[in-house]
Design a protein around this nucleic acid. Structure first.
Lengths: 331, 331
DNA sequence: TTAATTTTCGGAACCGGTTCCATTTGAGAT
DNA sequence: ATCTCAAATGGAACCGGTTCCGAAAATTAA
């Protein structure tokens, strides 16, 4: 591997001149040619460590993600990556395997590695997060959760919840089980539910019960089975698509037909909801687009340009077979 | 951010002494204490660029992946990442969005960034790959494809194909459509088919036809629909789970019931095959474990220890509802 | 033609570590 | 008390770039 000094010697100039050539300083035409030739001849390419050492900065955006094997995460990452590439930045992924402690470590580690910025696919913001973000002086962007102290890009959970509520009511459902998650997750656990509640409060003949379960399918399946026996709702409104899948499995095992005997909705718009049969009605979020937007946002922050503190990403209700129209049913 | 010089001054020693302390050289007890205190006091942590610049090497393994939104890819990455962390290495992901040219670029880019090693989740090995691997002098490990010139970790595609063939025959199926992919993909397109063919050749009353489609669900769905009409097989043996999902969709839209009217099998063991109903019988590969094994393998190569050239990862036939036992059916 | 600019270029310092080498220090042996 | 030898330490060079500064060369103005 050749160094800038090799090039300088080959071209018969000083290495400062080569550096200037590389970075667009003033270089004479004749020397330009010589350097150019020396570079193509050797296939020279600057050592990024030497550059970063001097610059005290990289063009890498560190992205912290709680898990890699989730549709939302991978789509978001793809969006971030593609957009960053276009802007000549690199993405570095740190997978924390849903371990909050590792998230904190990653923040410090990224700062130490002189990342230009940090994107966190957030699930929960603890005091330790805040402390870490404040002590490292690196621009930070949260995706998926909002926090007054930091820039963030969120999905429109509240309105998605509201829209889903309206949708379900319009289809004629009144006996409803809302299967949510812990309120520590503001976006998924609180906002979606609040939006849904608002829709419910606009009608008055509703029998709605709120339940809480975990994010994974087996847990949702267990919860759903219990709820079916104790409440027998006409529809499950689930806070995530995975939970909806759990409900689906529970209803299979209980011999309940969807959507005739029980309807189900989700949130997320995961691919799988469209692949399976019956397809699940869901509020689709645009993860990839959100990732692209996040990439643009963090670069604005890196370049210290002003940018609004919170961006809201769109959603869309996707109607599939898992919800019937009760109003069209024969009496 | 403090530097090693700050620590040296604070502790009243030379920076070489601090460096020695950090790297386990001989340092007196008294000075050890002083340095230790200075470090905790300032929260010092060495600049990785300065280190890498001097060392001409990093402890990062570059991993090139054709796509992030695939079960196989994300599981493999998780395995690699977790194992590397344990061994004090880092993983850097380069997503190429199924663009072979980008794979080549990534190889050179990784070499330039002084990666300790490169792992490629391979789909196809072209001459350009070979050229790139040979010109950069970085240890390389292929996952998923075999090549005589390079180290590789492959799934046992041939035997999985064979086992699947045996399984299908044992269940009594004789009118079989094998829905495969391009032979440019040696593992998926050739090996699985060869194994399957071997099983078929051991019986003689078989009506098997071989078809080729693409990796994505809609393409598989279209192909399946045509095949259903022209051949009407009793079972589809699909080269991947995604193709099997395409067949499932096609049969829904054609009003064909699974497994009563048509059986389906896949390869991969993707999560979704167990979530949906009916579950798909599939040859499950152990992607995460393969990733862990790959991580260990590449580190062996990095440390120039001898290691066998090709490792074969296990598989397991998972029996689900998408295949009936014809022999148990009432006549 | 000479003076005043402007452009081009080389030298040296610097970024923050590691490592080699020479010197000092201290413990143990004689 | 003196000599050895190993451990402990400091100084300097080096990794491969960038950037500042001043000198030299080329251009323009007078």
């Amino acid at each position: 591997m050749s160094t800038i000094l090799d090039i300088a010697k080959l071209a018969g100039v000083a290495k400062s001149t080569v550096s200037r050539y590389l970075n667009g300083g003033s270089v004479g035409e004749a020397t330009k040619k010589k350097i150019e030739q020396a570079i193509t001849e050797t296939g020279y390419s600057p050592n990024p460590f030497a550059q970063s050492l001097k610059a005290k900065k990289t063009n890498i955006i560190g992205t912290i993600v709680p898990r890699l094997d989730s549709y939302a995460a991978s789509q978001t990452l793809i969006g971030i990556d593609e957009q960053l590439k276009k802007m000549n930045y690199q993405m570095l992924i740190s997978n924390t395997s849903q371990n909050l402690e590792r998230e904190i470590e990653s923040i410090y580690s990224f700062a130490n590695q002189k990342m230009a910025g940090i994107i966190l696919l957030a699930t929960e913001i603890t005091d330790q997060h805040i402390e870490a973000f404040e002590s490292v002086k690196v621009p930070v962007l949260l995706i998926g959760q909002e926090h007054e102290d930091f820039h963030s890009l969120i999905h429109d959970d509240f309105h998605a919840g509201y829209a889903m509520g309206r949708y379900v009511l319009e289809k004629g459902y009144r006996k409803i089980a809302y299967l949510g998650v812990t309120e520590r997750d503001i976006s998924v656990g609180v906002k979606r539910k609040q939006g849904f509640k608002k829709a419910i409060q606009e009608v008055d003949d509703c029998d709605v019960r709120f339940y809480e379960t975990l994010f994974n399918i087996p847990a949702a399946q267990t919860s759903a089975k219990e709820i079916i026996h104790e409440f027998r709702p006409a529809i499950f409104v689930c806070a995530t698509d995975n939970i909806a899948l759990g409900v689906l499995k529970a209803s299979y095992s209980e011999g309940i037909t969807i959507p005739q005997d029980l309807a189900v909705t989700g949130f997320g718009g995961y691919d799988v909801t469209g692949i399976i049969h019956p397809g699940i009605t869901t509020a689709k979020f645009f993860y990839k687009e959100a990732g692209e937007s996040a990439a643009r946002h963090i670069i604005e922050l890196v370049n210290e340009r002003s940018v609004e503190k919170v961006t809201v990403s769109k959603f869309e209700i996707i109607e599939r077979e898992s919800v019937d129209n009760l109003l069209n049913r024969p009496l």
